[in-house]
Design a protein around this nucleic acid. Sequence first.
DNA 1: AAAAAATAAATTGTCGACAATGGCGGCGCG
DNA 2: CGCGCCGCCATTGTCGACAATTTATTTTTT
Lengths: 201, 201
Amino acid sequence: MEGEIASGSKISEPELARKFNVSRAPLREAMARLERCHLIERIPNAGARVVKLSTEGLRALYQIREELEGLACRLAAENMDDHEIEQLRGLLDQHLTTQRVREGESYYQEAGDLDFHYRIIIGSKNPYLINMLCDELYFLVRMYRVQLGMNGPRVSRAFDEHKAIINAIANRDGELADLLMRRHIAASRGNIELKLQQLGK
Amino acid sequence: MEGEIASGSKISEPELARKFNVSRAPLREAMARLERCHLIERIPNAGARVVKLSTEGLRALYQIREELEGLACRLAAENMDDHEIEQLRGLLDQHLTTQRVREGESYYQEAGDLDFHYRIIIGSKNPYLINMLCDELYFLVRMYRVQLGMNGPRVSRAFDEHKAIINAIANRDGELADLLMRRHIAASRGNIELKLQQLGK
DNA sequence: AAAAAATAAATTGTCGACAATGGCGGCGCG
DNA sequence: CGCGCCGCCATTGTCGACAATTTATTTTTT
């Protein structure tokens, strides 16, 4: 995810097993999980390679995200209880004080439970949705984030958008939360796409 | 999927390995796949059990389907070429002549490439969408279908809805195709839910 | 020199066995 | 008779080795 192993480089099962001093069995399963998360791609009988980030990949991924996280917002507006919403508000305030101070540095890099989107998805209470987003797509999303991390004016703007979304959810206005989330994700995509074109190629 | 192994019954790894005369390794992977498809559920250190079909599960599953297959329609309207659309039309006509004759018997039971929804998803050309729907959710969908198969007036109605959707796609009207698909799936859900309440419990 | 055959290497799937972990039932004790 | 402890057992994770298949490379033949 963090780019430590170069994009497109080959991942050898026996080689990594030696490197980490484990047998092939657990490493095999680990690679199966990576494949499920779309972090590696397999070519039959020719090995596995680290995914390459691309504009087309980003587009395809974010098309799904818009739809699914929009739905997550609608469901979260129905299903999150007041306590959870308050907790999420607290998380945002915490981000404001700890992270946003060093402006433009690193909003958005938190993992798991500390991530805003993650929490909303959990809040939807739909097990299939949670599984698909948190256990499969999210690692790839985070890979784009980490390697083409957001900075500049987008940081504070994203924070404001998060605020607006949580407000809509707190007002139990699922329709609005849905719309705001879709726009938020679309904007985020635009930002990353720009970086991809500048840096990547 | 077909209910041969009763819902809720335990699946033992070593036991099945003996039954099929294979070692635990391949059976292990097979079960991992079943879990990924949500056909079995694991309780840590207590074994795996066949999923139980339920109204809540159906609801959660179809919420995702509406969203994702709606998106698939929108994308298919953009990305399917004329040849693919014509092929899909042919498939529908074939269903009409071969299956629909024995009215109310078994529309909808075809697997894989022969399935209408399947083909549209492929037509979206979005690899993540294809993977999630065809490789993960679809087996569970088919389980509901097979075990609570459609019959009665719903059969011909579903066929007409399919026709309308393919027409919208052929007209490159993604928005309409999206809407029609969502309604189609919602109606299908209603039908299955009814059966679940009648028969299941 | 080009094509074909043979060989080497890597990937991938499979096997049988062992070990650790946690749940469940039986047993003793209060 | 109820409660907690202990041992058995199923589940689960791991290991090292072997086999099959496919791809790449080298050697041989025309």
